[in-house]
């Protein structure tokens, strides 16, 4: 299995719902807490596993706005794992999820240096590395109702721009979406082979306009003949 997310850039409105859902679930989840430094002071700075960035593509007046949520891509070639000296970072063989064993991490930051996607953040209080767990503690928890065995960010996304599934299964929704919508990897040239896939914005919908053939009552009101229409 190769578990991961599809993120739809065509519909993401950048609401940050997935970011706080993630923080909420995971602060009491297996990787938590996700501490916050100076939470009510100057320059609050905490550990997040999912962040939303917004870009503008093109120049005034021909530009568009794109919201891009980013969390761990659960890369196939996860250098964050190979560089880790303690073995705290690992990629699960059975499903490809990349995790950090909080009991073993020494907080050297090296894995975050190795990650091109900014997916790892050091906990300011615990000093251990935090990252997206793909909500391993939801997707496998049989005590949750079936429909809720989904990552917190996926469950909450109000535009359903996030889809979770198995990329090894060609019939899964994620595989289908990636195929049909021309899913892209970010920075493929680095060779990390990220699993998370981004669906590019669709082409803008073109709507036909009414063919008017010059019918116009511009000149006089009188030309508009009353039709007999029963009320």
């Amino acid at each position: 299995m190769k578990l991961g997310l599809v993120v739809d850039l065509d519909t993401c409105v950048g609401c940050h719902g997935c970011a706080t859902a993630c923080k909420q679930w995971n602060t009491s989840g297996t990787i938590g807490p996700l501490s916050d430094k100076d939470p009510y002071g100057r320059d609050p700075n905490g550990a997040w596993l999912n962040r939303i960035r917004t870009y503008e593509v093109g120049d005034t007046p021909n530009s568009k706005t794109v919201n891009m949520p980013m969390s761990c891509m659960h890369c196939d070639n996860a250098a964050c794992v190979t560089v880790c000296p303690t073995g705290a970072s690992y990629k699960r063989e059975e499903d490809g999820i990349v995790l950090v064993d909080q009991d073993k991490c020494m907080g050297c930051n090296l894995c975050s240096w190795a990650c091109p996607y900014g997916a790892r953040e050091l906990d300011p209080h615990q000093g251990t590395m935090k990252k997206c767990t793909l909500c391993v503690d939801r997707i496998y928890d049989e005590r949750l109702p079936k429909g809720e065995r989904q990552p917190a960010c996926v469950l909450t996304c109000p535009t359903k721009s996030r889809v979770f599934g198995d990329f090894d299964d060609p019939d899964s929704e994620v595989s289908r979406l990636a195929r049909e919508r021309g899913g892209k990897q970010l920075m493929p040239e680095l060779g990390y082979n990220p699993v998370n896939t981004y669906l590019p914005p669709r082409n803008k919908k073109q709507q036909a306009a009414y063919e008017t053939s010059g019918r116009s009552v511009k000149d006089t009101v009188k030309q508009w003949v009353n039709k007999v229409i029963a009320r």
Partner: peptide, 25 residues
């Protein structure tokens, strides 16, 4: 290549947080 938009200029409008973050530090 980072954002996948290779045809036009790309500018960051919002990094998702206004104070600092681990990544920025």
């Amino acid at each position: 290549t980072a954002t996948g938009f290779t045809q036009a200029s790309v500018r960051l409008l919002d990094q998702g947080h206004t104070a600092n973050s681990f990544l920025n530090d």
